[in-house]
C-alpha cells in the first residue's frame, strides 16, 4: 500500500507539496515512484523559472520510462534540489522529505487549499486502481 503522509497536500498527477508560509516544496508521491521504477534522472527547471498551475516543470526518468512532473500550483522556482542529480535513487527510497524536486514561491497560497488531503488522495488512488 502506498505511503501517504498526513501533513502534505496531493495532486491527481501524483505530486505532493509541503507548504511553509508562501513557499511550497514539490515532489512526487510514493505511488508515482513505485509506478516509475528505478529513478535515474530528473530534468529540473532553473531558479527564477515561472510556472502556472498544472504546468510541466520537468521530467523524471526511470530506466524504462519518462514522466512529466507538474506544478500543482503556480509560482516562481526559488530552489532546485541539485542533490538529486547524484542520487536520483533517493526518490525511490523516500519520495517525501529529502527528495523534494523544487521549491516555489506560490503566486496564490490559497491554491494549496484546493489540493487533495491525504485521505482524499488515498480515496483517489483506490478509485482509480
Amino acid at each position: 500500500m502506498s505511503n501517504i503522509p498526513e501533513n502534505l497536500r496531493y495532486s491527481k498527477d501524483h505530486e505532493w507539496i509541503s507548504v511553509d508560509g508562501e513557499l511550497a516544496a514539490i515532489g512526487i508521491t510514493d505511488y508515482a515512484q513505485h509506478s516509475l521504477g528505478d529513478v535515474v534522472y530528473i530534468d529540473m527547471p532553473r531558479v527564477g523559472d515561472k510556472f502556472g498551475a498544472h504546468e510541466a516543470f520537468g521530467s523524471v526518468e526511470s530506466v524504462k520510462a519518462v514522466s512529466e512532473v507538474f506544478t500543482p500550483i503556480g509560482g516562481e522556482v526559488v530552489e532546485v534540489n541539485d542533490g538529486l542529480n547524484d542520487t536520483p535513487e533517493k526518490v525511490n527510497g523516500d519520495p517525501y522529505g529529502d527528495a523534494w524536486f523544487i521549491k516555489i514561491k506560490m503566486d496564490n497560497p490559497l491554491e494549496a487549499d484546493g489540493m487533495l488531503s491525504s485521505v482524499e488522495y488515498e480515496e483517489y488512488l483506490e478509485a482509480s486502481a
Binding site: G37, D38, V40, S62, V63, K64, N92
Partner: peptide, 8 residues
C-alpha cells in the same frame, strides 16, 4: 517487466 528488486 520487473520484479520487486527492480530493473537495475
Amino acid at each position: 517487466v520487473q520484479y520487486p528488486a527492480g530493473v537495475i
